[in-house]
């Protein structure tokens, strides 16, 4: 018995160290992939920046769906709010410093996140889903009709951000935008890594599994998810603002139901409830989209649908979830 306890105490330590180590490894892999992307696809940096921007949306969705268990089909509302706010700040208020635009985007995303949270958490199950869809449609209609502010269906154009830090122009090849995006992604990733490992993150995972148990511990389910919605909104806001700054236009598609649904597809493809899953899902989905829609744009929606059905049937834990479960099992078998 004592021997067993000792062994466990020893086994406990390295597990913890390994966790921190895998965090560093993950960040290192993201950096390496970013550098590789820069040199391998110098003509496609705009696409890579778009991938980063969408990855931030998917990470943001992962926070509420993957970590808190709230199914939503309206998460693009948060992303679009960030994009339009950053864009309108530049076009209508002359706030053209990219960092200031980013701050505006984060604020707007947070506000949209809190608003969505208040509404979505009013109901459960199907009505909750309906609320989330209605929210993104409502945002879309509002942006469509307030065309003097948003450019309506033509999109909000002529956003002209200043050079980053006064030094780096946003060039035609998207080099600055790409580097800016990579840095933002890394910062968000590290912050979120801390958040999901913190007591708060543990509380959220608990809520996802059993909200009744969490209430019986005396914790507020509603309050906790609202906090997560605020963080999620901020992250989506970063993604939206990055999109506005890098493409210099904001279109109604950034507030669409389709984008919300696609973000969910990407998340599930990669695997819910893990930050790397969200990243892997986004990269594989958008890379795949780029290839397929170049070959045959007509079939894109059919293929997304088929992909979704296949993932649900054969890899319900997503690419990352399936792979890590496989590795875990092999490690255990070896022991």
């Amino acid at each position: 018995m004592a021997a067993l306890m000792n062994e466990n105490a020893i086994a406990g330590k390295p597990a913890r160290v390994r966790l921190a180590g895998s965090d560093l490894l993950g960040v290192a892999i993201v950096i390496a992939a970013a550098i590789a992307g820069y040199f391998l696809f110098p003509n496609n940096l705009a696409l890579l920046t778009r991938i980063i921007s969408i990855a931030l949306l998917v990470l943001s969705l992962d926070l509420v769906t993957g970590y808190c268990g709230v199914a939503t089909l309206g998460h693009a509302a948060l992303y679009g709010a960030g994009a339009y706010a950053a864009g309108m700040a530049a076009v209508h208020f002359g706030i053209t410093d990219p960092l200031a635009m980013m701050a505006v985007g984060i604020l707007a995303g947070t506000a949209a996140g809190l608003l969505s949270g208040v509404i979505v958490l009013r109901a459960h199950g199907l009505p909750q889903l309906v609320l989330s869809i209605a929210i993104v449609h409502l945002f879309h209609e509002a942006a469509n009709k307030a065309s003097s502010w948003t450019g309506g269906s033509d999109g909000l154009a002529s956003i002209a951000p200043d050079p980053l830090l006064g030094l780096f122009e946003f060039d035609l090849w998207s080099r600055t935008a790409y580097v800016f995006g990579v840095v933002l992604l890394l910062v968000v990733l590290i912050v979120l890594r801390l958040v999901v490992r913190s007591p708060f993150g543990m509380l959220c995972r608990g809520i996802k599994e059993d909200p009744i148990r969490i209430r019986a511990m005396g914790a507020s389910v509603h309050g906790t998810i609202m906090r997560m919605y605020a963080i999620s909104g901020a992250v989506a806001g970063v993604g939206g603002a990055l999109n506005a700054i890098s493409t210099q236009v904001v279109g109604l598609d950034s507030l669409s139901f389709t984008l919300s649904a696609e973000a969910l597809v990407m998340l599930v493809l990669g695997g819910t409830g893990s930050l790397y899953g969200a990243l892997i899902g986004t990269v594989s989905f958008l890379w795949f989209e780029d290839i397929v829609s170049a070959a045959n744009p007509f079939h894109w929606l059919t293929i997304v649908g088929a992909l979704l059905i296949l993932v649900v049937l054969f890899a319900p834990r997503g690419l990352y979830g399936t792979a890590s479960a496989f590795l875990e099992r092999r490690q255990e078998a070896r022991r």
Binding site: L194, V195, R197, S198, P199, F200, G201, M202, L203, A219, G223, T224, R227
Partner: peptide, 9 residues
């Protein structure tokens, strides 16, 4: 302290 967002227990 359960809503603390930094650190690990």
């Amino acid at each position: 302290r359960s809503t603390q967002m930094l650190g690990h227990f």
